[in-house]
């Protein structure tokens, strides 16, 4: 009988898998309290590095054609499908086999669903505005830039994808703080991203303590929007984060109750994509 090669769960930053600069880890136990792995206990400096990577990647990612982003994101779903069993194994630390299977399948479906919005979202949310004058005037959605996403513990892989896919489909890049309690499948998702065609830096995944990372994330001036979905239930942390966000007028997003019904297909929405965009309006005169 051969001995397993056990996996070291690391961060995913700028397309690579570093350990924390702090050298720290924290134990991840299964639902019966048994240690299954040590996850990286990310630090504010890991966050800092991840934001630099996300910012550096943002222009290039947004500049790709919507069709190209759609294909790249679809490719992620293909790779996820190939790792289906691994995701199930990792989720099973917390839920039953059947529940883990359902979650992984829903996750892949959700990724495919959002991938397909890449070249459609602007059509349903943009506008040509009939202004009172000889001007052509149009409004288009644009990615807000760099987004910080705080994931909940509930449905850790599905919730991650339900927030990150709509975030990046429009051209944002992000720094994601994975579920604190169940981070393992998220790290594996990083491996799927790394082996698909998503450029390094588009999705950066940290693991660690929300209480430690979120205030730094919210206050980071180079994060344009922070998604505090994972802070639901920790009102003090939400207040701290929203106050910190005000320092640079960062946009604050929370999943709506419907969006947070992760397993429900009706939780997916183009309006979630809309949580992570700006609208730009352009005027131009019309004259001979």
């Amino acid at each position: 009988m051969s001995i397993d090669v056990r996996k070291t769960y690391k961060l995913y930053v700028n397309g690579a898998f570093p350990r924390s600069e702090s050298g720290r880890t924290y134990p991840v136990n299964n639902s019966r309290g048994r240690l299954v792995a040590n996850a990286v206990l990310g630090s504010r400096k890991d966050l800092r590095d991840a934001v630099i990577a996300a910012r550096a990647a943002q222009n290039g990612w947004a500049k790709r054609s919507a069709y190209n982003r759609a294909q790249i994101l679809y490719r992620v779903a293909e790779v996820m499908q190939g790792r289906r069993e691994q995701f199930i194994t990792e989720l099973r630390h917390g839920v039953s086999a059947a529940a883990a299977e359902r979650e992984v399948d829903a996750t892949i479906d959700r990724w495919v669903w959002y991938a397909g919005w890449a070249d459609k979202f602007a059509q349903i949310t943009g506008a040509s505005n009939p202004v009172d004058g000889p001007y052509f005037n149009f409004t288009v959605p644009e990615p807000v830039g760099v987004v910080g996403v705080v994931c909940p513990d509930d449905a850790p892989l599905l919730a991650f994808v339900s927030r990150v896919a709509p975030c990046i489909v429009s051209g944002n890049t992000c720094v994601v703080l994975a579920s604190e309690r169940w981070p393992l499948a998220s790290v594996t998702l990083g491996e799927a991203l790394a082996t698909s065609d998503v450029p390094g830096g588009v999705v950066n995944i940290l693991t660690g303590r929300r209480a430690e990372i979120v205030p730094w994330m919210a206050g980071h001036a180079d994060i344009d929007t922070i998604d505090l979905t994972g802070c639901a239930g920790d009102r003090a942390l939400v207040v701290t984060a929203e106050q910190a966000a005000a320092a640079s007028v960062s946009r604050v997003v929370h999943a709506t109750p419907r969006e947070a019904q992760w397993a429900n297909e009706s939780s997916q929405s183009p309006y979630t994509i809309g949580s992570f965009v700006e609208y730009k309006t352009v005027w131009h005169p019309k004259g001979p």
Partner: peptide
């Protein structure tokens, strides 16, 4: 920027969305 005026400036209209990026 949330509003870009090309070959014009400071035009406003009720049908035209107005608002900022970043700290605007």
């Amino acid at each position: 920027a949330g509003v870009v005026w090309a070959n014009t400036f400071n035009r406003f209209d009720p049908t035209s969305p107005f608002g900022g990026y970043k700290e605007s």
